[in-house]
């Protein structure tokens, strides 16, 4: 993974240089944006509902036993918006959309479509990578906002209806409102934006670096997803340190 770091940085620099041309490729950006939302929204909601529910289920009884049941809303709220929603959604998008990007670009590379673009003087970074990265960078923070809200709702459901917890909706959300500040949500959104760029660069780079036919495409997709997840987790720690300080 790290041997490709230089190439990925170069690709990212080329994407940054291409950003002023985004409007020209707006149709492709909207297409990608729609694909990401369409493919992921149901999964985002399902996953987030259960993540929120599990956090409440794990922490609720412990807090109740110690007489801290009132703090449950804040714990679910902060953990979801600062950590769980951005990381889990980024991993979901890497698996669902990042893999598709690597496969699509990889197959275009293998079947000479990217060479054909070059012979038409069309830069593959402008034509293929830029729209995907812009769409990811716009879609992931939005999905994270949806995930946070659905996750909070999932936590509140368990808090209210689990006999061992029994914290009502009102108490849950009052505590959540007291504890969760706007900057906590921004914290999560900043992370998700960075994760989106990481997933985009890694998956598009793997696609462009594909060699050797259908097996090569398979290898690229695997590497794209695995590298994305590893870098999401590593960068999550670094970002958390930076944002906390």
């Amino acid at each position: 993974m790290f041997q490709n770091l230089g190439e990925m940085l170069l690709l990212f620099a080329r994407v940054l240089r291409a950003v002023p041309f985004t409007w020209r490729h707006r149709h492709k950006v909207f297409e990608q944006f729609y694909d990401i939302g369409n493919a992921s929204l149901l999964m985002v909601c399902t996953l987030s509902l259960f993540i929120g529910a599990v956090v409440a289920l794990q922490t609720g009884p412990v807090l109740v036993d110690r007489g801290l049941a009132a703090a449950l809303g804040g714990i679910v709220g902060v953990s979801l918006c600062k950590e769980l929603a951005p990381v889990m959604m980024a991993i979901l998008i890497a698996g669902r959309n990042g893999s598709a990007m690597a496969a699509e670009i990889g197959s275009m590379q293998v079947y000479q479509e990217i060479d054909a673009l070059r012979t038409l003087r069309i830069d593959p970074v402008h034509f293929l990578v830029l729209p995907r990265m812009v769409a990811l960078a716009a879609a992931l923070p939005l999905l994270v906002i949806i995930s946070i809200m659905v996750g909070w709702f999932g936590g509140a459901l368990v808090a209210a209806y689990n006999d061992r917890i029994a914290v009502g909706f009102q108490a849950f959300f009052e505590n959540l409102r007291d504890v969760v500040a706007l900057e906590d949500v921004v914290h999560g959104l900043v992370k998700s934006f960075v994760f989106a760029l990481l997933v985009g660069v890694i998956c598009c780079h793997q696609g462009l670096a594909t060699r050797g036919g259908p097996r090569g495409i398979g290898r690229s997709v695997t590497k794209a997803v695995v590298n994305s997840i590893v870098l999401i987790v590593i960068s999550d720690y670094i970002l958390t340190r930076l944002l906390l300080s």
């Binding site: 699509e104 275009m108 079947y111 000479q112 479509e113 060479d115 054909a116 673009l117 070059r118 012979t119």
Partner: peptide, 21 residues
């Protein structure tokens, strides 16, 4: 790639290399 900047050169690939999408 200079060649493409100054001259109109086209290539018909063995696989046709059409964009499937």
């Amino acid at each position: 790639a200079q060649v493409l900047e100054h001259y109109r050169v086209a290539m018909v690939f063995q696989s046709a290399a059409l964009l499937n999408s």
